[in-house]
């Protein structure tokens, strides 16, 4: 009854509250952890030390070349029709403004289509995007490409309504993408409330003038590290079940939800197996990725380094969509693999997480799909995830100790049993 033993140990036993407490110590000590900062590297050193003290095997860092974008001071001052400091956050990779800022009249649009239809109005203007919230995958296109679309039509800067379904006047940052063929212009997110206010002003025909100042700059690339630890397999140590989350975060909030929770339930999966004295037949490997927030560069470079051994990767799992109350697992793989994993998820009745869904996995483990490696992620009640995502609200107060225990139980049972089965999961 190993599955029940694991769940009881995590939820009711001496590991109760351990995941939350470990994450709280980590985030309270280091705060947010943007790639390129010494603080992130200090937090990785701390983790390597903690993982060794936890008795895990093969604890080490693996170097990753990462972008080094620095925010600097920034502001967006509404000058007309009244002076008002718009609540904003520059977007990752954005260029800065000249020291005196960019002062220009603004137009407000609600979609890329509207921008195209009003292209004659764009030259020399700051474009404000007040796109409605649809869903993250849909709405995030505005954060990603507002600058490119604006610059293509001669705009001088873009301000994007934060990609969030709910707001208490909080700006949300995130990465954005330039095109090599289009002039790079400054771009930032503004609070939902401010985007809506500007849209109301524009609808009334009111002239809007904004002064945008951003000191953002991109420094030469630097070196960060993926953080790796293992429970070595007893029979097939070369074969790997990988669990993961990312350790880097944005430079606002504390990165407790995104993705401290995912990183620390992954540590807990290995830690619980070690604490219970279990030894699966194949190796359980935990990776805390670096550089996820700037485009998944840590996981991509890990894949490039290890893909020659893809035939030995049994399952890759990532948690990067919250560690709220879990209800199951989402998996990608062959039909027979899904059947097998569904049987494992059925063991999760004691933590009420028996939902099994065929679906997508996360960015950081997606690279393995082309090699046929099954992938998976955690299903949890993350309906409010984007309330906090990439904002100052991403703190330990979002996390709940019991929910994190339940997530850790799910993560441990699934990864341990797959690692301990007599055979690897079948592939197409």
């Amino acid at each position: 009854d190993v599955a029940n033993k694991i769940m009881d140990f995590v939820v009711n036993g001496s590991a109760k509250g351990q995941t939350y407490n470990r994450l709280a110590l980590f985030t309270d000590t280091f705060g947010n952890r943007l790639v390129g900062t010494q603080n992130l590297e200090n937090s990785i050193d701390f983790m390597l030390d903690q993982l060794k003290k936890d008795g895990l095997d093969n604890v080490h860092g693996e170097n990753v070349t990462v972008p080094n974008w620095v925010r600097g001071n920034e502001s967006a001052m509404l000058l007309e029709p009244r002076r008002y400091n718009l609540i904003m956050l520059g977007l990752g990779s954005s260029v800065g403004t000249p020291p005196e800022g960019i002062t220009a009249e603004a137009i407000v649009v609600s979609s890329f289509d509207e921008l195209t239809n009003r292209s004659s109005e764009v030259p020399g203007k700051i474009v404000v995007f007040n796109q409605p919230w649809v869903s993250y995958p849909v709405s995030v296109a505005y954060r990603d490409f507002a600058a490119v679309h604006t610059a293509q039509l001669g705009g001088v800067a873009s301000l994007v309504r934060s990609i969030a379904g709910f707001s208490i006047h909080s700006p949300h940052t995130g990465w954005q993408d330039y095109s090599d063929k289009v002039k790079k212009i400054p771009t930032a997110c503004i609070a939902v409330e401010d985007a809506e206010m500007l849209a109301r002003m524009a609808a009334r025909g009111t002239k809007i003038v904004i002064q945008l100042k951003m000191q953002a700059k991109t420094l030469p690339q630097s070196i960060s590290r993926n953080t790796v630890a293992e429970v070595a397999g007893s029979v097939h140590p070369e074969q790997v079940v990988l669990v993961s989350g990312h350790l880097d975060s944005w430079d606002v909030g504390q990165g407790a939800m995104d993705d401290g929770g995912g990183a620390f339930i992954s540590w807990q999966a290995l830690s619980v197996v070690r604490q219970l004295g279990l030894r699966p037949k194949r190796t359980m490997r935990m990776v805390m990725w670096t550089g996820e927030e700037v485009g998944g560069v840590g996981s991509l470079q890990y894949y490039q380094r290890h893909k020659a051994n893809a035939s030995n990767y049994d399952l890759v799992m990532e948690s990067d969509m919250g560690t709220f109350t879990p209800y199951g697992i989402e998996m990608r793989g062959s039909n027979d693999t899904l059947e097998i994993l569904k049987s494992i998820v059925e063991l999760l009745g004691p933590v009420n997480a028996t939902t099994f869904r065929k679906g997508e996995d996360g960015l950081d483990v997606s690279y393995w799909e082309k090699d046929g490696v099954p992938g998976g992620s955690l299903l949890n009640h993350n309906e409010h995830y984007f309330w906090f995502h990439h904002s100052d609200g991403d703190t330990m107060s979002v996390q709940d100790p019991h929910s994190m225990d339940l997530c850790a139980a799910v993560w441990t049972v699934v990864s341990y049993i797959v690692a301990d089965l007599d055979n690897m999961l079948p592939r197409n």
Binding site: D1, A308, S311, D336, E339, I417, M424, R427
Partner: peptide, 22 residues
């Protein structure tokens, strides 16, 4: 590099193996 392919595995047997973890 060719990947593992196991055409001869017994799915029912694997399910019974998993049930033993309960």
């Amino acid at each position: 590099k060719s990947l593992l392919k196991r055409p001869n595995y017994d799915l029912q047997k694997i399910k019974e193996e998993i049930a033993s973890y309960k």
